[in-house]
């Protein structure tokens, strides 16, 4: 267990100053700031468009802008890019051979890398929650006409967290598949290209009755079907978890059974 945490720490250490790591911070920071600035500078026209919505309804109009951009396009693209970057650190430096000749189990090397990838996505989504609530509170203070302060902030925070957690679970399938692709292919084109093709296919097939089986459509589906009584672990969530277990396990067997180049 100790070697696992040490490996994980090493993952964080070596990815400092890489786009994989900073992407997890820059993406929420950028998107939330842009929406904040839009709300701030276009406050009057936005308030007119809100048609008197206040409190919780106002919050969800605001939050759904960020969530819509994220869930529909940015998140899957970010996942494809990020999983590629995490594994590319080792491909580029040709360090798989030295990692696998360390006196720690290959399972530890692999799981720490996989968990690191999941943690990066998790950190990114936590930042989305924190930043969107924080910016919302600032807006509520400086532009009282949004009526953000009328709502129960704790309740808003807990509901937002639940939505992002749902989004995270729905992303597990894509993460595991893209992680697998970028593990077995060194070059940029294969994992990225195939990832984008699958993403486009899932967009086209979104209305198909079995589209919930395509992991790339799951993040969007998870936020499209949101309602008051949505549960965290719905059908989409379980399918995503199923893909994740399958592909992370497959990745482990491929990387350990395959001879290291």
């Amino acid at each position: 267990m100790k070697s696992f945490f040490l490996s994980l720490r090493s993952e964080f250490f070596k990815s400092r100053n890489t786009l994989a790591f900073w992407g997890a911070i820059i993406l929420p920071l950028f998107l939330c700031t842009v929406v904040f600035l839009g709300y701030y500078f276009k406050a009057d026209s936005i308030i007119r468009g809100m048609k008197g919505a206040n409190g919780e309804a106002a919050w969800f109009q605001y939050l759904s802008i960020i969530l819509g951009v994220m869930g529909s396009l940015l998140l899957p693209m970010y996942l494809i890019f990020m999983t590629y970057s995490v594994n590319n650190i080792e491909h580029k430096a040709e360090t798989w051979k030295s990692l696998f000749s360390l006196p720690i189990p290959k399972f530890t090397v692999y799981t720490s890398k996989a968990l690191y990838t999941l943690l990066l996505v998790f950190i990114s989504l936590v930042l989305f929650v924190v930043l969107s609530i924080a910016y919302g509170l600032i807006l509520g203070k400086i532009k009282p006409d949004f009526h953000f302060m009328d709502a129960d902030i704790m309740d808003i925070t807990s509901k937002t967290s639940k939505i992002y957690l749902k989004l995270f679970i729905a992303s597990l399938g894509i993460i595991s598949i893209q992680f697998f692709f970028s593990l077995i292919w060194q070059d940029f084109m294969k994992p990225m290209g195939l990832g984008f093709v699958l993403l486009v296919v899932s967009m086209i097939a979104l209305k198909w009755e079995y589209s919930f089986l395509i992991p790339y459509s799951l993040p969007l589906k998870s936020i499209m079907g949101l309602s008051k009584d949505s549960v965290l672990f719905d059908k989409e969530a379980w399918i995503s978890i199923g893909y994740a277990i399958g592909f992370f396990t497959l990745g482990y067997f491929v990387i350990t059974k395959r001879s290291v180049k």
Binding site: L6, F13, K14, A93, E94, T95, S98, S101, P103
Partner: peptide, 28 residues
């Protein structure tokens, strides 16, 4: 055992010190 196989496997974006540190963390 310590090993060096073919070309040295180094993280080019890290300094020499940090390359050693990334490994040192694993070994504690």
């Amino acid at each position: 055992v310590g090993s060096l196989i073919e070309s040295p496997a180094l993280y080019h974006h890290l300094s020499g010190f940090d390359n050693l540190k990334a490994r040192a963390i694993i070994f504690g």
